[in-house]
Design a protein around this nucleic acid. Sequence first.
DNA 1: CTTATAATTAACTTATCGGTTAATTAATCA
DNA 2: TGATTAATTAACCGATAAGTTAATTATAAG
Lengths: 121, 121
Amino acid sequence: MQDHLSQTFAALADPTRRAMLARLARGEANVSDLAKPFLKDMSLPAVTKHVQVLEKAGLITKSRNAQYRPCKINGESLRDVVDWVEQYRTFWEESFDRLDAYLKTVVEKKKSKGTNHGRKK
Amino acid sequence: MQDHLSQTFAALADPTRRAMLARLARGEANVSDLAKPFLKDMSLPAVTKHVQVLEKAGLITKSRNAQYRPCKINGESLRDVVDWVEQYRTFWEESFDRLDAYLKTVVEKKKSKGTNHGRKK
DNA sequence: CTTATAATTAACTTATCGGTTAATTAATCA
DNA sequence: TGATTAATTAACCGATAAGTTAATTATAAG
């Protein structure tokens, strides 16, 4: 896989992996916790592979606790996704909600006076 | 490819296809217009396939004009992407910008009194 | 009617993806 | 020490993704 964004989108292009992220949104979980809902459908090594795909894409981080491997979401790479897709906002808003766009610019101005949301820039 | 969102993410997991969307963001274009920047790197049938992937994912629509096939972005499916990723907003904001979150809820309330941004729901 | 242009289809190749089973590593527990 | 649990690695398989070249369709233009 070439660039990082492609790697991220590819990792998200699988319902099992998105379900794992949904699970992790509720809190940290070991690989076997993540595996539980899927063990009727696939083997544990298959789960390990999915976790590795998420990890290599930077969508999750994995640490060590005894023989367990607690995983958690890494929000940074999801921001890459939203930053990319926001470029196209006008295309899904089209003629709807001019007010929405206006309010958004107001909020953006307020925000840029404060922090820059953790971005390096 | 199974579900629609997986299909969409898979279509976006390729830099050539994302570049095509970037081109279409500047206006409608025929397949050969879309092909132009890539013909040093790949054949025209390869381009046709990329366009078909984007079309099947619902990211673009293609019409007919004589022997030309003008394409344009379909914003709806990009909204599916942003709607999905917004679930995880807290993970990239983490402890930053509590103000940001607050302002967002204010805006959301204002918006839900007006239209619902073209969503069917 | 013939030729040129735009785009697609067909057939094929190669690499990658998502899964399997069997074996292995590493830590805990009795 | 030996057994159990958590997770990974190795080797393999079938399906599909992404590219190729050659042939085909469809419209426009001389």
